[in-house]
Design a protein around this nucleic acid. Sequence first.
DNA 1: TAGGATTGCGCAATCT
DNA 2: TAGATTGCGCAATCCT
Lengths: 171, 171
Amino acid sequence: MSRQHKLTSTDQNGVSVIQSQTQSSAAGAARATTGLQQVPQLVPVSPGGGGGGGGGKATPPSKMKKPMPDKDSDEYRQRRERNNLAVKKSRMRSKQKAQDTQQRVNELKEENERLEAKIKLLSKELSVLKDLFLEHAHNLADNVQPPAVAAAPGDLCSSSTNGTGGNSGGQ
Amino acid sequence: MSRQHKLTSTDQNGVSVIQSQTQSSAAGAARATTGLQQVPQLVPVSPGGGGGGGGGKATPPSKMKKPMPDKDSDEYRQRRERNNLAVKKSRMRSKQKAQDTQQRVNELKEENERLEAKIKLLSKELSVLKDLFLEHAHNLADNVQPPAVAAAPGDLCSSSTNGTGGNSGGQ
DNA sequence: TAGGATTGCGCAATCT
DNA sequence: TAGATTGCGCAATCCT
């Protein structure tokens, strides 16, 4: 995927020749369904180009003229028609794909927001729990360190009225 | 964005006429940079169509033939060239956009994974903390319950290790 | 009205 | 050999 029509610059490759194209209007009538006709005016010569620059085996130096398809040929028209169809199909797909990709972006963005929200929530929960732990630890410390006399046992409970239930983050 | 060339079906609109196109090869030489030439073979008649369908003021009923631009005209060529340029530009943009969109998808996917990982981590942490809490609660219970006698004040706390904190069911 | 931007379409060269 | 892609130019529209 990613070829670049050398055709783009015919003159660079070599000499260009005007191809006199006899346009028989009769054929045109047959193709009434189409609105336009394309007529090759110029034809690149010697596709092989400079010849033997690269390896020996590939790209026969010169020759091999494209017989310039007869526009009036029945086969030509059939071929064109099929290709036109294929092109249309391909383009539709391409467009569809692009659309799908765009939608994917939207979906992913949404999911991202959801996830971010969830993270926020979990973080908060975690924070609360940690605070609880700290508090608890302090309480314990208070109860144990100052063995001065006999701290009222009730203190132990002063802050333990809090905790998290059976929550389980699973989605 | 989303017009549909009625042109696609010329015959539906009305009669089609073959436009004899005098192709002067001289002009072709001037456009050597191009490889092909497009020649309108057919031309739709009366764009206004059956007329009268819509509002009254716009779209003059009939007439207004497109003068069929002179291919040889200098102005025509300039116009074409400008358009070709614009087309190329537009297509490049379009392609670029599609590419960007695709990349956006990749980025979002990555970010999603990151977020998901983070969620997993937080969930785990949370889980650990909760377990610790439970363990602690049990310890407290064990320390206070069995001594059936001396543990007078401890009872107060035996059940205070429980409660619903910041739990948030989530959706 | 003029002029750039889009879009559908067909052709031909390639790719597969 | 035939269908799928892709670059390109034309013309009709759209949109400023």
